[in-house]
Design a protein around this nucleic acid. Structure first.
Ligand SMILES: [Zn+2]
Ligand SMILES: [Zn+2]
Length: 273
DNA sequence: GCCTCAGGGCCAGTG
DNA sequence: CACTGGCCCTGAGGC
């Protein structure tokens, strides 16, 4: 990935952690994740693909590399990571490097310090979920990998605390999401278990919670129908109530702007942008 | 048949 | 000279 959006879905060809790996069609993967998109799409009138694309942009915009904090460049070896960590992991595994930490395996790994201790950096790559088996021994290029990979991860700040006590409005967003919080410091990535309580990303929930702001009431729908009829009339006879149409359009614009301003993260975008 | 994207390779830069 | 990291090529699978 070089600057483009990032796919939040389970990568193509990757299977969920199961005893018998098998090819999984898109609609069979991440059932709840897709269900969320379907619910949102149904209510907002936009396609599921548009929602997925929106997720990608959000992730690219707000989520740093879990290993060093640099900008994520894509999904590499089982996790979302930056280009440099991808290259580092590849070289380390391919060249069978065995780094040893001289400071007790507790060195910080950041953009500025990641070069200082390759041992701790490699350890962090593994702990955050990079897969050794994703490095191809035969070094063939292209295609899709078939190793089992973890569900996509989000940082704890973007994951709701639903599994730790605070309940969400169940029923609006269905359960079974294969979305987990990014592993905490020192927490190992383990294969997902079907018994795990699903956690809904706060970001998704927040976006979903403001969808109603641009929905139409029955009265508004009839107004829009009226405006539509007016527009047809205007096109046919070059006459009509232009002022009423402008008022309806103004009302819609107001709602859309209100909705935009209610979106999480939107207020962080500078006016110039 | 075209597109996507996660693999690998290359190479200029750095210490 | 080893290592880094950005960029490009490749090709299986999806649409
Ligand atoms: Zn990184
Ligand atoms: Zn170290």
């Amino acid at each position: 990935m070089t600057g483009g959006p990032i796919d939040l879905r389970e990568p193509h060809g990757h299977t969920n952690a199961q005893d018998t790996p098998k090819e999984i069609k898109e609609d069979e993967r991440l059932p709840a994740d897709l269900a969320q998109h379907s619910v949102l799409a149904a209510q907002s009138g936009i396609t599921r693909q548009q929602l997925i694309n929106r997720d990608m942009e959000i992730k690219c915009f707000v989520i740093p590399c879990p290993i060093c904090g640099d900008k994520i460049s894509g999904f590499h070896y089982g996790i979302f990571s930056c280009e440099s960590c991808k290259g580092f992991f590849k070289r380390t595994v391919q060249n069978k490097k065995h780094y040893v930490c001289m400071r007790g395996s507790s060195c910080p790994v950041t953009i500025t310090t990641r070069k200082k201790c390759p041992a701790c950096r490699f350890d962090r790559c593994l702990r955050k979920g990079m897969k050794l088996e994703a490095i191809r021994e035969d070094r063939t290029r292209g295609g899709r990998s078939t190793y089992q990979c973890a569900p996509y991860t989000l940082p704890p700040s973007l994951v709701s605390p639903s599994s730790s006590g605070i309940s969400l409005d169940q029923g609006r967003i269905s359960d079974g999401a294969s979305v987990k919080s990014e592993p905490q410091e020192g927490e190992d990535v383990k294969p997902s278990s079907s018994k795990d309580k699903p956690a809904i990303p706060i970001l998704l929930q927040q976006i979903h919670d403001v969808e109603h702001l641009w929905h139409c009431s029955e009265a508004e729908i009839s107004q829009i129908r009226q405006a539509d009829a007016m527009a047809r009339e205007m096109m046919e006879s070059e006459s009509g109530d232009c002022l009423s149409m402008c008022k309806i359009a103004e009302g819609r614009l107001y709602k859309i702007v209100k909705w935009c301003k209610s979106l999480p993260l939107f207020r962080h975008i500078s006016v110039s942008n």
